[in-house]
C-alpha cells in the first residue's frame, strides 16, 4: 500500500503544481479573453531570472523570488504593449492572437539560449529546502509543502481579490461584459494590463519551486503548459477553481493508475480523460453552460477577439470570469 499512497501524494503535488501554473492562464483568459500560451515563456524566463539572481549573483532566495516577480511583470507589460494591444488595434482574429502567443513561447527558448546559453543549469538550493519528514510512511518535503501552501494561499488570495476588492470586481466586470464595464467608467486598457501583469506574476511561484526541484533548461515550460491547458479543459476554462480542480485531477489521473499500469501509460490515461471532457463536457467540471448558438442575433456585432477586448455576449465563446 505504500506504493499507492506514494503515488497519490505524488499526484496531488503534481496536480497542485499544474493548478499553480494554470491560475494565471485562467485569469488572463477570463478577463482579457486571450488564450495566453505565452505564459510558458513567462514561466521559463522567470525561472532563469531566479537562477541568475539566486545562483549567479547569490542573492537570498526571497530577493531572487521578488526579482523573478518583477521580471514576470515586465514581461507581461512587454507582451501586452508589443503583441496584444497592436493585434487588438488591427482587429486580429483570435486564432492569430493565439498563434502570436505561441510564437512568443518558441522565441523565448531562442532568446534564453542567446542570453544564458543552451546548457542545462541547476539553481542553488538553500539547505532548509532539503528538509523532509515522514507521515504515515510517506515522505513529505519542503517542496511538497511549498506547492501545497502556495497553491492554497494563492487560490484564497485570488478569491478574496476577485470578490472583495474594487480592482477584482473591475476584473470580473470587464471579463463579463467589457462594453458595459466601459459604460461604467472602467478603463478597459488599464484592467487588461493589470490582468496581464497579475496573471503573469501568478506563474512565478510554480517557476521558482520547479527551479529548486529540477534542472532549468530553455524548453522547461512546454510540458507544464500542456498539462495546465488540460487542467483548464477538465476543470473549466477561465475559473480559478477550475484550474485547481483540473490540476488535481490531471495529477491524480497521471499517477494513480500507475499502481496497476506500466509508467508509460500515465499520460495516455490523462489524454483519454481530457478527450472525454472535450467530447462530453466541454465546459469542464465547474464551467457554466454556454449560451446556445441560436441565441446569437444576426444583428449582433461580430466577435471582436482583439487579443485585449472581446465579449462573450458579442459572440465570443470565451468564458466569464468567476473566482
Amino acid at each position: 500500500m505504500d506504493l499507492l499512497f506514494t503515488l497519490i501524494k505524488t499526484g496531488l503535488v503534481m496536480g497542485l503544481l499544474y493548478g499553480l501554473f494554470a491560475y494565471g492562464l485562467s485569469l488572463i483568459l477570463s478577463v482579457n479573453k486571450v488564450f495566453h500560451v505565452a505564459q510558458g515563456a513567462t514561466f521559463v524566463l522567470s525561472a532563469y531570472v531566479f537562477y541568475t539572481l539566486g545562483t549567479t549573483y547569490e542573492w537570498p532566495v526571497v530577493l531572487a523570488f521578488l526579482g523573478a516577480i518583477a521580471a514576470a511583470a515586465l514581461i507581461a507589460c512587454a507582451m501586452q504593449y508589443l503583441i496584444y494591444v497592436p493585434l487588438a488595434r488591427r482587429d486580429a482574429d483570435p486564432i492569430v492572437v493565439m498563434v502570436a502567443s505561441l510564437l512568443v513561447v518558441a522565441l523565448a527558448a531562442y532568446v534564453i539560449e542567446l542570453v544564458w546559453g543552451a546548457s542545462v543549469v541547476s539553481a542553488a538550493v538553500p539547505e532548509w529546502f532539503g528538509w523532509s519528514t515522514t507521515v504515515g510512511g510517506i515522505r513529505v518535503d519542503v517542496y511538497d509543502l511549498s506547492v501545497l501552501v502556495m497553491s492554497l494561499a494563492l487560490f484564497g488570495v485570488m478569491h478574496w481579490f476577485l470578490t472583495r476588492t474594487y480592482a477584482g470586481l473591475e476584473f470580473r466586470a470587464v471579463g463579463d461584459n467589457p462594453e458595459r464595464a466601459q459604460a461604467l467608467a472602467i478603463n478597459l486598457d488599464r484592467v487588461y494590463l493589470r490582468s496581464m501583469i497579475l496573471g503573469s506574476v501568478l506563474v512565478v511561484p510554480a517557476a521558482v519551486l520547479l527551479s529548486l526541484k529540477a534542472p532549468i533548461h530553455p524548453s522547461m515550460g512546454f510540458d507544464l503548459l500542456l498539462k495546465a491547458v488540460i487542467a483548464l479543459t477538465i476543470g473549466g476554462m477561465g475559473r480559478m477553481s477550475g484550474a485547481m480542480i483540473g490540476g488535481l485531477l490531471v495529477g491524480i489521473t497521471e499517477t494513480v493508475p500507475l499502481f496497476w499500469l506500466p509508467t508509460e501509460w500515465g499520460e495516455f490515461v490523462v489524454y483519454i480523460v481530457a478527450f472525454f471532457f472535450v467530447l462530453f463536457r466541454p465546459t469542464g467540471l465547474v464551467g457554466s453552460k454556454r449560451k446556445p448558438r441560436s441565441a446569437k442575433k444576426p444583428s449582433d456585432p461580430p466577435a471582436a477577439p482583439r487579443g485585449a477586448a472581446s465579449d462573450e455576449s458579442s459572440g465570443s465563446a470565451m468564458p466569464t470570469p468567476v473566482s
Binding site: L3, T10, K213, D223, T255, P262, T263
Partner: peptide
C-alpha cells in the same frame, strides 16, 4: 521491473516508488 520516464521529466518519484516496490 522496467519503468520508462519521459524525456525532460522533472519528477521521477513514481518510477523510483515502483522500482522500490
Amino acid at each position: 521491473a522496467q519503468e520508462s520516464i519521459r524525456q525532460d521529466a522533472t519528477d521521477a518519484t513514481t518510477q523510483i516508488a515502483k522500482v522500490k516496490d
